[in-house]
Design a protein around this nucleic acid. Structure first.
Length: 801
DNA sequence: CTTCGCAACGTTTTT
DNA sequence: CGTTGCGAAG
């Protein structure tokens, strides 16, 4: 369907009220009938606006009460955004609505039905590092070869199994390896159950299974939720889609339940972690979707940027089909820059970014994107040396910091002393004379009796045993001391009495850690205010807006399960501390330091998804890096790389830079790359090449010199290495003409490090020249054709100017 | 229990 | 080239 014919199908929205200023496609999406609907939402097409406006519209027109809506996102950020926007549209009690991440909603669900789900009431959630260390303990406990069964890999296996809905018994076992993995999985599950903890995948799987196996619960929720809205549908995995189908099976579509799925197959960049784009077409088929609405009007970027994005993504097969358009005009050309080294690339883009800033663009409106984190270093050091404020996304989040995790571990032990993960984390931190040997004895005792470490402390005699007893006393006294206090006081108390505060006060680098611990207290305070946990946690009001949603067989409180809910059967309320710990696991917090400052934004392309900037630099556009070499083995991999590039391009509002470099330092050695194939997939008319071929530094000397400079070792190291004579004059001169000449003469215009052309393999970079005369050989990196040795007497290699 | 030194490893990541 | 994690020595 062409975009114009679709335009004609849709009516214009009313000129006032909630729906004003929507374009016809958005209007059609917002007001789609109450049945399965798929929205193909292009980048920058107003997706979030459509989602929130639809919820508001459904409620305003009385089609649904807040309690009848479930809206699912992937990230906390997206769900918060949705809630914020919704509250500006309608005066509504958001609390009664189920808006959240998949995992957040699963948590809410399991809190309400912990008993039915077979969990302890105060179950806690393991983050990925907790999960790995828990699995490590299992593997150790089973006395398995830790070289062969690596905890991190086993954790991927288990998470993968869970995301396929498989329990240990369902896992395929065809050899010793797989049989052992199933055993580890089983033992891990037993351990989690014993300790009262669940990992992220377990949250999803448990909820799914409870819905699947318990008819009363299933019918209750299916009756309750008339409208389910899913954001970023292309990122759902198998289990998440199955979970969704439990809440709103296809058979109910149009008969009381409507699923509104919003996604963009072209922005599916998480296949590597189990996302199934295929869920979109499955959804269309299984739910017999009558109407697929495409949002193709882009409100973000100028024409040249969009034309580039469209042309690029057009090289993918297996698309649902979509073309972005804008009314903003062509705007500027996309600027392309070829650098001689990663260092030069960084230098150049930093200067360019500074020029933009001087030209009036905020630093925070400038993004520097890269394919992999390792690339950020050169850029960071460049920015650092230039004294330009910058911010790197990714890295440790607030609740993942060591000192914060320590404090949380103490808090978790107060809440649940059988949490062995937390026990092990802090039993000897700060150090209190409990060594590895003691721990080992304790673990043996615990394993033998099937009890927790905390419960087994009495079994260890001697000095270590005495110290262990003291630790248990400490935890017990903290529990007693905090009794009846509010969350803030509890945390302050624990930070002091655990010895953490004193430890960091004496530590050299402890000041920042102390600040983070203080920040933890603030976070708890904010949580209490936000979530409405005062000194007395109050049961939430029964969902006043949809009394009909409450069914027989289940108590009223179920219908109103908020993050911290009264238990479905006893009406007992989760403690503020337990709720805060859950919050800390589910929301790792911000990872950006100095969030308020105007700083240049550095991030991977993955983390740039969903963001937009006035000016964007996409760096390292080289074969092997972007597209990444590890993704090239199969066609799907390359297509995902291309979607990644599509995401990167569509982040830019006004100005887009694409840059690549002839050489790059990676894993300690210099790599010679050719420019990314993605350049061949962009319309030449949209591009403006800023660097004619062979401009600037090019000779082997100049490059080596630059590399040496970059290492901070300068000319000395080069001379020391015996490669160059000690001629300091070379350092100042741009490129010593004599040297270039000499190389030129030897091999008919070919120069190491420069691009060459081969009739069959196409463009490549000359890596090495060897021999002379008839024996002359060249090593060339042809990117997708690999690196080859060629006899120059046979192969026709021509330098590209 | 800390500290030092060496070996291994090096796409992307939210919950 | 850097980082990280683990094992051995102090």
């Amino acid at each position: 369907m062409s975009s114009h014919s679709q335009d004609d199908l849709f009516a214009a929205p009313p000129s006032s009220g909630l729906l004003k200023n929507l374009n016809p496609e958005q209007y059609a999406a917002v007001t789609a009938p109450a049945e399965a609907t798929l929205i193909l939402a292009g980048a920058g097409s107003g997706k979030t606006r459509v989602l929130t406006t639809r919820i508001a519209w459904l409620m305003q027109t009385g089609q649904v009460s807040p309690g009848g809506v479930m809206a699912v996102t992937f990230t906390n950020k997206a769900s918060k955004e949705m809630v914020t926007r919704l509250t500006t549209m309608l005066p509504v009690n958001v609390r009664g609505m189920w808006i959240g991440t998949f995992h957040g909603l699963c948590n809410r669900f399991l809190r309400a039905h912990w008993k039915l789900a077979g969990l302890p009431q105060g179950f806690q959630i393991l983050d990925s590092t907790d999960t790995v260390s828990a699995i490590k303990r299992v593997i150790k406990g089973m006395k398995l070869d830790e070289e062969r069964y690596i905890a991190k890999q086993v954790s991927w296996f288990i998470a993968g199994a869970k995301e396929d809905g498989l329990r240990p018994g369902d896992v395929e076992q065809h050899d010793e390896q797989t049989r052992t993995l199933a055993l580890i999985y089983q033992a891990y599950e037993d351990q989690c159950q014993r300790e009262g903890v669940v990992d992220f995948a377990e949250l999803m799987l448990r909820s799914f299974e409870l819905m699947r196996d318990n008819q009363a619960v299933r019918e209750h929720y299916q009756r309750r939720f008339q409208h389910l809205l899913v954001d970023e549908f292309q990122d759902t995995n198998k289990l998440q889609y199955a979970w969704l189908k439990m809440f709103a099976p296809p058979a109910n579509s149009g008969r009381g339940q409507a699923v509104f799925a919003v996604g963009d197959d072209d922005q599916s960049i998480y296949a590597f972690r189990g996302a199934r784009v295929g869920n979109m077409s499955d959804f269309e088929r299984e739910y017999r979707v009558k109407q697929v609405i495409k949002l193709e009007q882009n409100y973000r970027s100028f024409g040249n940027i969009l034309d580039s994005a469209n042309a690029l993504i057009g090289h993918n097969s297996r698309r649902l089909g979509k073309n972005l358009r804008t009314e903003a005009g062509p705007g500027e050309l996309v600027r392309v820059f070829e650098a001689t080294s990663d260092f030069a690339e960084a230098q150049w883009l930093i200067e360019e970014a500074q020029a933009l800033h001087r030209g009036g663009i905020d630093r925070k409106e400038i993004a520097i994107l890269y394919r992999s984190n390792a690339q950020s270093r050169v850029i960071e050091s460049g920015l650092f040396n230039a004294g330009i404020p910058y911010r790197v996304y990714g890295g440790l989040r607030f609740f993942e910091r060591a000192e914060v995790k320590h404090a949380l571990s103490y808090l978790r032990l107060i809440e649940n002393a059988n949490d062995d993960t937390s026990f092990l984390r802090v039993v000897n931190f700060p150090t209190r004379g409990i060594g590895a040997r003691t721990i080992e004895l304790l673990q043996d005792a615990a394993r033998a009796s099937g009890r927790s470490l905390y419960q087994s402390v009495g079994a260890v005699a001697g000095k270590g045993g005495g110290n262990l007893a003291a630790f248990v006393n400490l935890v017990d006294s903290m529990r007693n001391l905090t009794q009846g206090h509010n969350l803030r006081e509890i945390i302050e108390q624990v930070i002091e009495s655990s010895g953490l505060a004193d430890f960091y006060r004496t530590e050299k680098e402890g000041a920042e850690r102390l600040e983070n611990l203080a920040e933890l207290v603030n976070a708890a305070e904010a949580f209490v205010t936000q979530e409405g946990f005062g000194k007395d946690a109050v049961a939430l009001p029964v969902d006043e807006l949809s009394p009909g949603a409450i069914t027989e067989g289940l108590p009223a409180a179920v219908a109103n399960a908020a993050p911290a809910v009264p238990d479905a059967e006893t009406g007992e309320i989760m403690s503020p501390l337990a709720a805060f710990l859950t919050h800390a696991s589910l929301e790792a917090g911000d990872n950006q330091a100095q969030a308020g400052q105007d700083a240049i934004q550095l991030m991977t392309v993955h983390s740039a998804k969903g963001l937009e900037f006035d000016a964007v630099f996409i760096t390292g556009l080289e074969e092997g890096l972007f597209p990444h070499e590890n993704s090239l083995s199969d066609g799907d991999g390359l297509e995902e790389e291309r979607r990644l590039m599509y995401v990167a391009i569509t982040r830019a509002r006004q100005r887009l830079y694409l840059c690549f470099s002839q050489t790059r330092m990676l894993h300690g050695q210099t790599r010679y790359n050719i420019k990314s194939r993605f350049f061949d997939e962009l319309p030449e008319a949209c591009l403006k090449w800023l660097s004619p071929r062979n401009q600037g530094f090019g000779s082997g000397f100049a490059r080596d010199y630059q590399d040496a400079w970059q290492r901070g070792s300068g000319l000395k190291s080069m001379v020391g290495a015996g490669k160059y004579a000690e001629r300091p004059a070379y350092a100042a001169a741009p490129v010593p003409a004599a040297m270039v000449k000499k190389v030129d003469e030897e091999h008919g215009g070919l120069r190491v490090g420069k691009p060459v052309f081969h009739n069959k393999f196409g463009e490549g970079v000359l890596l090495t020249l060897e021999g002379s005369g008839a024996d002359a050989r060249a090593q060339v990196n042809f990117g997708r054709h690999g690196t080859k040795w060629l006899a120059l007497s046979v192969a026709k290699l021509t330098p590209i100017e």
